[in-house]
C-alpha cells in the first residue's frame, strides 16, 4: 500500500464515526422535514383588493369558512379592499351598475347619474331578504374565529385613512413583505 495516500481508504469507506455523524445529521434533517409536513396548522392567505359590495363578500366568506375548517387565515387588504375594514365605509359599500353585463340595465343606462345608488339599493334589499350576513357581521364573526385582517400601510396613507378608522382587531403597519411571507407559508393563496 502506498504511503503517500494515507487517506485513500477513508475516502472510499467512511469510518464508523463519520457514518454515525452523517446518520445523526440526516435524522435531524428528517425530523425537521416531518415537523414541517406534519404541521397541522393549515394556512390560507387572501389578498383583498376590491371595495365594491359584491367583491367584499368572497374574501370574507372564504376567510370565515376556512377558519371553521381550522385554517389559520390572514386577509391582506390593499387599495379599495381597505374599505371592507373601514368601520364606516364598510357599511356603505356600493355596487357598480356599469361594467357588469349581468346587470339588468345596459351600460349606457347604468352610467346615468344615480344608477349606482339604485343598483346598490336593489342588492342591499336582496341581501336583506335572503338573510345573507352583512359585511359587518362577517368581519366580526371572522375576527371572533381568529382570522387576521391586515390593512396595508402604504394604501392607508395613500387613501388618507387613519388607523382608528378600522375595526378593532385589524392589524395595521404591514406591507407587501408580510403578505408575501404569509403567502409563502400558506396552503391556499387567493387574490380577490
Amino acid at each position: 500500500m502506498s504511503t503517500d495516500t494515507p487517506d485513500a481508504s477513508t475516502d472510499e469507506t467512511p469510518s464508523r464515526a463519520e457514518l454515525a455523524a452523517r446518520v445523526e445529521e440526516l435524522e435531524e434533517e428528517l425530523a425537521d422535514v416531518s415537523a414541517e409536513v406534519g404541521d397541522d396548522n393549515k394556512k390560507m392567505s387572501i389578498i383583498s383588493t376590491k371595495g365594491t359590495l359584491d367583491m367584499a363578500y368572497p374574501p370574507l366568506i372564504l376567510a370565515s369558512t376556512a377558519a371553521a375548517f381550522g385554517y389559520e387565515v390572514t386577509v391582506f387588504h390593499t387599495f379599495w379592499g381597505l374599505d371592507i375594514l373601514h368601520e364606516e365605509r364598510s357599511k356603505d359599500l356600493k355596487l357598480s351598475s356599469v361594467g357588469n353585463p349581468n346587470m339588468p340595465v345596459p351600460n349606457v343606462v347604468g352610467a346615468l347619474p344615480g344608477m349606482d345608488r339604485m343598483t346598490t339599493k336593489m342588492m342591499e334589499k336582496k341581501i336583506e331578504d335572503n338573510e345573507t350576513a352583512s359585511i359587518e357581521e362577517l368581519i366580526e364573526t371572522s375576527l371572533d374565529m381568529g382570522v387576521e385582517f391586515q390593512a396595508c400601510q402604504m394604501t392607508i396613507e395613500l387613501m388618507d385613512y387613519d388607523e382608528d378608522n378600522f375595526y378593532d382587531g385589524v392589524t395595521t403597519g404591514v406591507g407587501a413583505a408580510t403578505a408575501i411571507q404569509d403567502m409563502a407559508e400558506a396552503d391556499i393563496q387567493l387574490l380577490v
Partner: peptide
C-alpha cells in the same frame, strides 16, 4: 341564515 353562517356557527 345562509352561507357561510351555518358552517361557521357549527364550528363555534
Amino acid at each position: 341564515a345562509s352561507c357561510p353562517m351555518p358552517v361557521v356557527k357549527t364550528k363555534s
